[in-house]
Design a protein around this nucleic acid. Structure first.
Lengths: 190, 190
DNA sequence: TAGAATAGTAAACATATGTTCACCTGTCAA
DNA sequence: TTGACAGGTGAACATATGTTTACTATTCTA
């Protein structure tokens, strides 16, 4: 049983069960009759940097078991698609969300931020409680209506500016309640 | 020890160690002297739908232990941010990537797709080997140069159309090698 | 105030787990 | 041909795990 095939199988198991298999289960996965075969094979995976162990011997997933693998090819220009699997691998969850406990999703309706590259149907990730900087995109309730706009300061006055020429900027008269700051945008094509 | 606090602690443990804690560890986490206290408490979490068990008694994470929690508030319009933690919870990895083994990331440079809401600095997720439909965004090597464009068919002829009025559409003369189809776009603000 | 539910302790047990040791191939290079 | 070696089997062992049962203290409720 070669290493790459084993990694593929263990990775599939990890995706499906959301935990790494035991040695017994690795043996089953690879068709071994003995746990020890799995044990030795696993040692190689550790040496190769795919896995690690905690102090009690339990396996912990490393780079190749991040939720999204094969994402190595990231270049400034464009890829040479021949080269597969460079080393940088990451999870989109970890990449896009710094404070998961304070972040929620929102599906965008309306085109008020279209010139900022946020289209209707996109999903924005909003971090609650974050203090907006000038130029951030925020979701705010101004005069009891929710909108997503640029957050700007003009002479100390908060101004909410849309990224769409057909809309007017908003200067909150009475109240301004901030739902949070947009920290990332994701869009899925189907 | 109330349920929400326990969930928070177990969730934190899960994030950090990439596996669920054992009953002993849950007891430690909550300051219990007995595993059984953790056992009973866990039973409540299962009843409440936070967790589940496999056939051998091992805990398996459910909705609230998805990589990105608190993402319930998804509405067509805008949120009532008072309500926290609705039930729909999901992982961005699972949401954005259908075939992780065939998907890789690419950081976008250039503004040829800006009118499609894809900006320089955005990251696109590309699925290799996927057959493009008319109107899909593809990454292709045409006449030995890599570009990202709309994929269109005009009278059976493949045409690559940019989403930027300042660029011309491309009709591949000699070769057209497809790196893959853009299945999603993510953007992170910092 | 009495009684029941709640929340935690303590001990016990069968089983599964990580790990080690001894052994058995077949392959490949010297 | 020989010897090292990779790759696998099988058994053994200490420990950790999930689970059950019995018991205690506290809180809530009728």
């Amino acid at each position: 049983m070669n290493i790459e095939k084993t990694v593929t199988k263990i990775r599939a198991y990890f995706r499906q069960n959301k935990r790494l298999p035991t040695y017994q289960e690795i043996a089953d996965l690879c068709g071994f009759a003995s746990k020890n075969a799995a044990f030795k094979l696993t040692q190689k995976l550790i040496d190769a940097g795919y896995l690690s162990k905690d102090e009690k011997g339990r396996l912990i997933p490393l780079r190749l078991f991040a939720p999204l693998p094969n994402m190595g090819i990231v270049k400034a220009g464009f890829p040479t698609p021949a080269e597969e699997e460079l080393d940088s691998v990451m999870s989109l969850d970890e990449y896009l969300v710094d404070h998961p406990e304070a972040t929620f999703m929102l599906k965008v309706s309306g085109d008020s931020m279209i010139e900022a590259g946020i289209q209707p149907g996109d999903t924005v990730l909003i971090e609650k409680g974050k203090k907006p900087k000038d130029g951030d995109i925020v979701v705010a309730c101004v005069d009891s209506e929710w909108t997503m706009k640029y957050y700007h300061l003009e002479q100390g006055q908060i101004v909410l500016v849309p990224a769409n020429g057909r809309y007017e900027k908003i200067v909150p008269k009475e109240s301004l309640e901030l739902a949070g700051v947009v920290v990332s945008v994701v869009r899925k094509y189907n």
